[in-house]
Amino acid sequence: MDGGMAQVAPWLAMLGFGAFHGLNPGMGWLFALSLGLQQRSEKVIWLSLLPIAAGHALAIALAAVLVLLGLRFISLGQLQWLTAFALFLFGLYKLFNFYRHPRWVGMKVGMGDLFLWSFLMATAHGAGLMVMPALLRMAEQQGMAQDLDLDIVQHPGAHADHALAAGGALWLGVGVHTLAMVAVMGVTAWLVYRKFGLAILRSRWINFDLIWAIALMIAAAAAFLAAMGVV
């Protein structure tokens, strides 16, 4: 992979995962659509997407925090291997249990309930774990891959600068991911509400639970390749 492509690859990954998460009905747009249909209001759909997006963003932000905290104690290579194994094990679990879902209390929910539900769903499905390889690559690009002890001795304050730059990049990555997810969620919910109706979910919709499990395994494979220095 050439230098220019290597620089934009993690950003494209965050954008692509955002679109993929937004298309998955299990991440929230189906919930928002159901509320809109119940209240016969398109406005309710759009308003419901806001706390859903915020809850999802919090789950992704926690993954970014784990990256920043992890790099304070172990090397980038070690964290890459740890992430790869965690993704593989979780992906393997989801592959054989993709039909299981966290339970919810019902459809009478407020904005706070939607926020909490979205955060729990994203966490339970490993949304943050899925994007961690891309977040690690962003941190690497900001100089966090250097040996910290040697870096601090030779360049006092450099680690703090690297951490600050990496933190800024990671938060921007979380924002890019969330915006892509909201855009796809909104378009998908609007198309089902206005054009296709719920019948499309029974007749033509695909098994996103299985696809999600496969995506976790693909992300694990990419994480292993990154840990080996292949990509």
Rank of each mutant, 00 (worst) to 15 (best):
residue 120 L to G: 03
residue 38 Q to K: 11
residue 13 A to Q: 09
residue 111 M to W: 15
residue 222 A to Q: 05
residue 121 M to E: 08
residue 30 L to K: 08
residue 98 F to H: 11
residue 78 Q to R: 12
residue 76 L to T: 01
residue 95 L to P: 00
residue 138 M to W: 07
residue 182 V to Q: 09
residue 193 Y to K: 07
residue 140 E to G: 14
residue 178 T to Q: 04
residue 139 A to V: 06
residue 182 V to H: 08
residue 46 W to A: 12
residue 71 L to D: 01
residue 192 V to H: 07
residue 74 I to S: 11
residue 227 A to H: 04
residue 103 R to E: 15
residue 148 L to F: 07
residue 162 H to S: 08
residue 160 A to L: 15
residue 73 F to Y: 13
residue 52 I to W: 04
residue 140 E to D: 10
residue 81 W to D: 01
residue 129 L to C: 04
residue 5 M to K: 13
residue 170 L to V: 00
residue 227 A to G: 06
residue 177 H to P: 02
residue 65 V to F: 13
residue 190 W to I: 02
residue 191 L to W: 12
residue 161 D to Y: 10
residue 204 R to A: 12
residue 101 H to K: 14
residue 208 F to R: 00
residue 17 F to N: 02
residue 149 D to R: 13
residue 20 F to H: 04
residue 31 F to P: 00
residue 113 D to R: 06
residue 50 L to R: 05
residue 23 L to K: 00
residue 168 G to I: 00
residue 174 V to D: 09
residue 75 S to H: 04
residue 160 A to I: 10
residue 41 S to A: 10
residue 109 V to K: 08
residue 120 L to Q: 09
residue 59 A to M: 05
residue 219 A to K: 03
residue 37 L to G: 06
residue 100 R to D: 11
residue 161 D to E: 15
residue 64 A to L: 06
residue 202 R to A: 14
residue 58 L to I: 09
residue 170 L to N: 01
residue 217 M to E: 09
residue 26 G to S: 07
